[in-house]
């Protein structure tokens, strides 16, 4: 995460093979096989994780659409909170950047 996520072209994906996830209402638990740690996820973390489970996605796209995805406005779900949540998921290893992946959609748009 060398540049700010909201402008980051890098493609991210959930570490699906390395984790187990269980949902209990608004709370989810994720077990990360590599670290052996169990994480408790709130709806925001889960929203980011869910969108990265099957679909590699640019970081900025995930960040941009997070409030909409959880049914909140930017006022209720401010950017620093989204960025912090994204970083926490990255730090735990539950999501990871795909090295050298090319985000063709973003480049074409640019």
């Amino acid at each position: 995460m060398n540049q700010s996520l909201e402008q980051n072209d890098a493609i991210w994906i959930a570490a699906s093979k390395d984790m187990l996830i269980n949902h209990f209402g608004e709370v989810s638990f994720a077990f990360h096989r590599i670290s052996g740690d169990t994480h408790m996820l709130n709806f925001l973390s889960r929203s980011i994780l869910d969108r990265l489970i099957d679909t590699p996605t640019p970081a900025h796209e995930i960040v941009d659409k997070t409030p909409e995805h959880v049914g909140l406005t930017w006022n209720d779900c401010p950017l620093p909170v989204v960025l912090k949540t994204f970083k926490e998921l990255s730090d735990t290893g539950l999501i990871k950047e795909i090295p050298d992946a090319i985000n063709t959609r973003t480049r074409v748009r640019a």
Binding site: L20, N22, F29, F31, R33, G36, T38
Partner: peptide
């Protein structure tokens, strides 16, 4: 116990 313990808890 790692994963085994997690599965029991779940």
């Amino acid at each position: 116990l790692g994963e085994a313990g997690y599965k029991v808890m779940m």
